[in-house]
């Protein structure tokens, strides 16, 4: 009995953690998401997929399990190299006297080009780069862009939505004007103009790496849907009796907004968050295609998918498969994890 009496109500986060562990699907999805995060950390630190940009295989190298498949493209390229004997230009070339010197110096240097392998574990792309390494390195960019941008958009949308819905009156009016301005401009135009400002404007030097520009563009254009949903929920909840009761005991406005109401509207935010992550990873593909996304010296699932378009015509499906499988597993796990989180946050569904 004494032990029972000592029990104190558990902290909201420990309760969430306990309930999440009880949900098998949720725990599995959490495991997958954590595995991806570890993978991109390793990739960022350079322990994994460091050589994704090296041309280690023959062009369009076959996947290891399809090693005996004919690779016409590689053979063709090889053949063209052997056939291409340069015509003799010694008579007219003013640099002809230098030829000998150059040949000698070339002989002094060791050839660094390794032997290109005929097969790679999950095949190679047009330049003979390892597709598996590209997919791993691509996860780093895509997930960082998708998840970070979605979190930023969620933060902006939730904060503004909470203020507008809770306070109403002029706060609401002002934020509605802002919302209307943002939604009245076609989104692709908004993205273009933001990209122009961020890449060439006064702030250009702040964003050395190209990813952050994309994150900021997406966050600033993607918060509007979240804002409307959260605002509507707050308008509904602000006059509920439990919020009045909190006011009656002296809880501050901030406490009522974020300690009392927020947990009660979290399901809306979580579902919208998972939709945003999916949408942003896809938008990143479009942006990369338009040349506004990640820089050419980086790889993302989006750039892989746009490369795959041409490859598929000549029957090289592995780059498409690698990017799709990586993307599908992550997105499925992520949205199911948010579903489990939503359930775990609801005490009625224990």
């Amino acid at each position: 009995m004494a032990a029972v009496l000592e029990v104190t109500p558990e902290n909201a986060w420990t309760a969430l953690w306990r309930r999440l562990q009880q949900d098998r699907v949720g725990a599995l999805c959490l495991g997958i998401v954590v595995a991806y995060l570890v993978m991109i950390l390793f990739a960022a630190a350079g322990w994994l997929a460091r050589g994704w940009s090296e041309e280690v295989g023959v062009p369009y190298a076959n996947p290891g399990f399809l090693g005996d498949r004919p690779n016409l493209e590689a053979a063709l390229q090889k053949g063209s190299q052997h056939k291409g004997v340069a015509p003799d230009l010694r008579n007219v070339d003013p640099l002809a006297p230098k030829y000998e010197e150059w040949a000698k110096r070339t002989g002094e240097l060791k050839g660094t080009e390794a032997e290109r392998s005929l097969t790679l574990p999950w095949g190679g792309d047009r330049w003979g780069r390892d597709v598996l390494d590209k997919a791993i390195k691509g996860s780093q960019v895509s997930i960082a862009v998708g998840v970070v941008a979605a979190l930023c958009a969620t933060l902006i949308g939730t904060l503004l939505g909470a203020l507008a819905g809770f306070y109403g009156r002029w706060v609401n009016d002002g934020l509605e004007w802002l919302y209307n301005v943002f939604t009245s401009i076609p989104s692709i135009l908004l993205i273009f103009s933001l990209a122009a400002v961020l890449r060439t404007g006064a702030f250009a030097h702040l964003f050395a790496s190209g990813i952050w520009t994309v994150v900021i563009i997406l966050a600033f254009t993607g918060w509007t849907g979240m804002y409307r949903l959260v605002r509507a929920e707050y308008m509904k909840h602000r006059s509920r009796e439990y919020v009045l009761a909190a006011q009656a005991i002296g809880a501050s406005a901030a406490s009522r907004m974020f300690v009392h109401i927020l947990p009660n509207v979290s399901h809306v935010i979580l579902v919208q968050l998972s939709l945003l992550v999916v949408a942003f990873i896809k938008v990143e593909v479009i942006l990369s295609f338009l040349g506004l996304g990640v820089p050419v010296d980086m790889v993302s699932w989006g750039t892989m998918l746009s490369e795959a378009q041409t490859e598929l015509v000549i029957g090289k499906w592995w780059q498409l498969a690698a990017a799709s499988v990586f993307m599908a597993i992550f997105l499925t796990a992520f949205s199911m994890l948010t579903d489990s989180l939503r359930d775990a946050l609801d005490p009625k569904l224990r």
Binding site: T8, P9, L244, A246, A251, H260, L345, P347
Partner: peptide, 21 residues
Amino acid sequence: FQNPYASLNPRRSIGRTLAEP
């Protein structure tokens, strides 16, 4: 309040509801 179904925050344990004031 009138409606005890609406006046308690459904996402808070009773202990936290009572300790807050």
